[in-house]
């Protein structure tokens, strides 16, 4: 199915994905809601890049059919990863936008962005 040799750009991209994932994990382990959301944004980029790499890197022509032709002559880049990544970016953007509004409302109403201080919905603590 995939016969092409790996492109030399693959390794740097993979390392970048690793770095982004590490940064995101560190951010998301924080108790601060804003850091968690920033981590979500960074991790989203790492995941989108991995979809891009999973579609294989090539240096062929863009997958656009010329106006006066029915098909593309010769090898062309895989068009699917772009479509997938675009969709994923849009969805990620929507989710992040909602989450940020929610964090803002949470800050206004609950007076904190620290997740360990948000206990309104939890049962009251037992007095020891």
């Amino acid at each position: 199915m995939w016969k092409r040799a790996a492109d030399p750009m693959e390794l740097p991209l993979v390392l970048l994905i690793g770095l982004l994932t590490a940064v995101a994990t560190w951010l998301m382990l924080s108790r601060n809601l804003i850091r968690l959301l920033l981590g979500f944004g960074v991790l989203g980029n790492a995941v989108n890049l991995s979809i891009f790499v999973a579609g294989r890197l090539t240096r062929d022509t863009p997958p656009l059919v010329p106006l006066d032709a029915e098909t593309i002559a010769g090898a062309f880049a895989n068009p699917l990863p772009q479509a997938l990544v675009l969709t994923a970016i849009v969805i990620g953007f929507g989710l992040l936008a909602f989450a940020l509004v929610l964090a803002w409302v949470a800050y206004e109403r609950l007076g904190t962005v620290r997740t360990d201080e948000m206990r309104v919905a939890e049962p009251p603590e037992e007095k020891a």
Binding site: F98, A99, L102, M118, A121, E122
Partner: peptide, 13 residues
């Protein structure tokens, strides 16, 4: 309500 926002934060995260 406050409880809803609290619950939603955990659900969303």
């Amino acid at each position: 309500t406050k409880a809803q926002i609290d619950g939603a934060v955990k659900y969303v995260a």
